[in-house]
Nucleic acid binder design. Sequence first.
RNA 1: GUGGAUAUAGCUCAGCUGGUUAGAGCGCCAGAUUGUGGCUCUGGAGGUCGUCGGUUCGAUUCCGAUUAUCUACCCCA
Length: 411
Amino acid sequence: MNLITKRIKGTQDLLPDKSDKFEYVESVLKNQAKLYGFRLVRTPVIEHTVLFERSVGENSDVVSKEMYTFLDKSGRSVTLRPEGTAGTLRAILENGLHNNLPVKVMYITSCYRYEKPQNSRYREFFQFGVETFGSKSCLADSEIIFLVYSIFKKLKVQNLKLEINSLGCSECKKKFNNDMKKYLEKNFDNFCGICKERMYRNPMRVFDCKNENCKKNLKNAPIVLDYLCLRCKNHFDDLKKILDLEKVNYIVNPRIVRGLDYYTKTVFEFIDNKSEITVCGGGRYDNLSEEIGGPDLPSVGFGLGIERLLSLVKDYDLEIYPKVYISIIGEKARFKAVELAENFRNNNISTEIDILNNSLKSQVKYADKAKAKYCLFLGDRELENNFVKFRNMVSGEEKEIDMNNILNYVK
RNA sequence: GUGGAUAUAGCUCAGCUGGUUAGAGCGCCAGAUUGUGGCUCUGGAGGUCGUCGGUUCGAUUCCGAUUAUCUACCCCA
């Protein structure tokens, strides 16, 4: 085969084999979130570019080099969403939902980032996320962490670790960044080029560098947690207390800072022990609403990578098999078979029928592969005497059933 | 953007230091079994050997370029 074109780099075709699993996981995500009181929102894939510049942060890698941004026909700069939070918050504010607090919403959407694809990393990927708006309380933080936990439990995903940290409010962040900058400047020559740039734009992010040398030089660097004001410290301590009470295991890692600029106070990541890949990341973003022109609206949420989650889900249960297969023997039976099939389907019985004009043998073979429960045979003999031959595909048992009674039989 | 690997049938892959007609397994279709799946046997369909160029009497094989895929880094879900 020589197609004129293939799928776009970093995108995936979701074929029936995998889509069953996708549907299953999606239903678990939605059901668990509903248990916690989150309701679904859908926002457009496409937003004005400025929304992401302001929220995710112009200096972040996501905005500065990974966005699908283009001018539409009227010359407006628009962007395919690179994450779910900004659009969700925009929609909440624009539609005035923040007048009834708290607002708890979830979303499952595709996101787009123009980067080089690799393991568990795509240009089009699916994100599940929840956001709680209007609560300063660490109960809101713990609630979403419990939700993630319950999802993994339900899906039987194990070997994940939870790392948490607190970045503090804007005051704490500012003080820390100042000292961090001083520290980095003192050791300026010991850091790699990227870090050197970062120390001026967003010093905290130097912690994300994986360069061994840089890591070494960070050993005596200031620690965010030492800079928390009393309120932030209490918030973080309370969160830990609640997690302890519910026996949720976590590691405090003062080095996780996250790449999206909007995070404040609590941040957390669920990391797969084997691959070290972050499956779920989130935290608090109390200033984001004001950043995009909204009121003071404390918020907390997370994003969870569906593809990454799918690769961790081993077994799942989803009945998708047709119940009945109708095999057709000879020309005359075709119309009767169609009539029967439609009758079954109208009665909520999933039914398949030969549409390839295949031999009877391959028809039954197909029924077997499709895992149909029953196979019906319709040929001249049956038509003449007004019955249907009925075969139980599991036991192999066969019966002749009166045509007028067949519906009750397959039910 | 930087590094590594790969590209042969629908899928997974063989193909020796270059040599007639490019193979296997699985899958698909058919027959053995003239109206019946799972097991077995037999046959069949299906390939511009990623693309372009070079070396050669001759290239799937060697060389160059290009594209695509995978993978590591950066970053993130």
